[in-house]
């Protein structure tokens, strides 16, 4: 094993994990995170490959059984296999995470770029609008949308996407303003490039690239927000095994059948943590604080 070094020569700059493997000098945490994310991606795309039981199959004689060789993560109140239900719920949970983050970033791009490029009163109005929305907790905004639109996967995507967009919009605005002030944009103006050309060739590519990092970080967060809504009973209708819905279903059994809360909680935490590790790595790559081996 060796210690990763950043381009600036500061080994502590990469804080996610400094322990690396010999093969390729990638941090161990990155390998683990990749394996975890890969597992959940397979679960989302082809859940039947990983399921050990039909996630909806009832076995009332096996109600609330603890983890065992037959049921790796135990069973729920109706005797359904919890591991298979977590696998089955991955698709919905990831759809919500990816969909909500994509929606959030799309809104952020549209409004953030508009604000940064327009300056003047439009920028002022949009900036105050972002500030006003940021003053409201994300969960409150999401609850508002769920109340208006009802509960479903698409509603959760919209609710979480809209709820988290103000923060991203402000970041996009700042990024665009930063790039606008750089020398190469000034040079392009001096060379007589058209405003449209400057925008698409210089400003947007440079302002948007950090968003890739934000996207990976946002997916994990969006899943947590959606799980929170489901936990409050405002998520997907039963018998969906979306992770937050699993948490909600198990909350009355937290002492009697701990696995109903702990196992979906671990799935949420593992996925969110893993995409965060990957996101941080990507971020540091973009910022040049770490070099590829």
């Amino acid at each position: 094993m060796s210690v990763a070094t950043s381009s600036a020569g500061n080994a502590k700059a990469f804080t996610t994990a400094t322990v690396t493997t010999g093969a390729g000098n990638f941090p161990v945490s990155l390998y683990i995170a990749t394996v975890v994310v890969a597992f959940f991606l397979i679960a989302a795309i082809a859940p039947k490959l990983l399921q050990t039981h039909d996630p909806l199959e009832l076995d009332l004689m096996s109600s609330l059984k603890g983890p065992s060789l037959t049921h790796w993560l135990g069973t729920d109140q109706s005797g359904r296999d919890l591991y298979s239900r977590i696998v089955a719920g991955t698709g919905q949970s990831l759809s919500i995470g990816l969909g909500a983050t994509a929606l959030s970033l799309a809104i952020a791009l549209m409004l953030g770029v508009t604000a940064a490029l327009s300056s003047g009163w439009i920028d002022n109005v949009l900036s105050r609008f972002f500030d006003a929305l940021l003053a409201l907790p994300t969960l409150f905004l999401a609850l508002l949308f769920v109340s208006l639109l009802g509960t479903s996967v698409s509603t959760l995507i919209v609710a979480v996407g809209l709820g988290t967009s103000p923060g991203y919009a402000r970041m996009v605005r700042v990024q665009v303003l930063r790039v606008k002030a750089t020398g190469y944009v000034e040079a392009a103006k001096a060379l007589g490039h058209s405003p449209r050309g400057i925008l698409f060739k210089h400003v947007l590519p440079n302002a948007i690239s950090p968003l890739a990092t934000m996207f990976t970080l946002g997916v994990g967060q969006a899943i947590i927000w959606a799980s929170g809504l489901s936990f409050l009973g405002l998520g997907v209708a039963p018998p969906s095994s979306e992770w937050g819905a699993l948490l909600n279903a198990g909350r009355n059994y937290v002492i009697y059948a701990w696995w109903l809360e702990v196992m979906p909680g671990i799935a949420i935490a593992a996925f969110a943590l893993s995409v965060t590790v990957i996101g941080e790595y990507v971020q540091q790559r973009f910022e040049g604080r770490i070099e590829l081996p």
């Binding site: 009832l58 009332l60 018998p239 009355n252």
Partner: peptide, 14 residues
């Protein structure tokens, strides 16, 4: 009642 949701899910599946 909260535990009654489970009855509905069982009816749904059966």
């Amino acid at each position: 009642p909260p535990d009654g949701d489970q009855v509905l899910q069982i009816i749904q599946q059966q």
